[in-house]
Nucleic acid binder design. Structure first.
Lengths: 150, 150
DNA sequence: CCCATTACTTATGACTGTACAAGTATCTCC
DNA sequence: GGAGATACTTGTACAGTCATAAGTAATGGG
């Protein structure tokens, strides 16, 4: 890749990063759910099924004791519950409650609202942008799971 | 705007947000500088010239007492220094030291490195993406200042 | 069978960040 | 000229984040 391409990738990255940071919704999600964003991210991870405590620790990039604290808190709020692992009696599984799913839907609703800057783009350009971003995403080979915030 | 456009804007936003979150560099910046990301953001704000304490408080969305604490810390590390306002003896101005500028350059270097997913895009597509993002940015009428993290 | 490892929990401590109260010094406007 | 507001600082309390140490219970491989 030429220096020109590298400069261009840098421009694109800077524009993208600035735009996402300028339209940061994490505080809004945290406020709407009445919890920190990292708790919301844990709920997000439980979308699609149960997880073990250690898997949640890996996902959140944190140590097991702190996951215990977070899961305690969310369980106390009625958003998830723990239950024994069917095969490994050391392990616990965690799944969303109905109320947790509602909280998650609320968070998704906030996060997914596109900023004004995107909405006013011409239809053909919006389609182009989406296709290009889709290509970037598939090239990055990352599953489009929930966002990873601080 | 039609429902179709709205759905398309949503897709673009979701792809963009996921990509930026998946390539979140704030922890890396914090680790490299040995400080929290909000301290790094304060340094970023001083790029381009001095600011008053109250202006920094506004920028960081925090109370004045905490800005005092952060500025105390950064001054103690030799990254910035305070000096009296020439016209308002109540106010203090804050500016980067040479070492603070070096720290800022280091942070910028980390933040600006484009993720692999962008670098492998074809040259013509990369150019298209950059142009579209530039249009989004100018439409959003937001100055491309430093990123705003949590 | 036993030991090292794993899964999770409890306890503790440090740092980050928010918020409020109260203080000093200064500015501005009536 | 003085009262009210502003700029910043000091102090305090609290919540969140995140780490380490040590504990119990269970697993798996030698």
């Amino acid at each position: 890749m030429s220096a020109h391409d590298d400069a261009r990738a840098k421009d694109a990255w800077r524009l993208m990063q600035s735009f996402v940071f300028a339209n940061d919704r994490r505080a809004e999600v945290a406020a709407a759910l009445g919890m920190s964003f990292s708790r919301a991210r844990l709920l997000w991870r439980l979308d699609g099924g149960s997880r073990t405590m250690s898997e949640l620790a890996t996902f959140l990039h944190t140590d097991a004791p702190y996951v215990t604290v977070i899961v305690d808190d969310l369980e106390e709020r009625g958003l998830l519950h723990r239950y024994p692992h069917p095969k490994d009696r050391r392990a616990r599984l965690v799944e969303l409650t109905a109320e947790g799913e509602r909280a998650l839907a609320s968070a998704r609703h906030i996060l997914d609202a596109p900023p004004a800057g995107l909405c006013v783009l011409a239809q053909d350009k919006l389609e182009q942008l989406t296709n290009l971003l889709g290509e970037v995403a598939s090239t990055a080979s990352g599953a489009l799971a929930g966002p990873r915030g601080a």
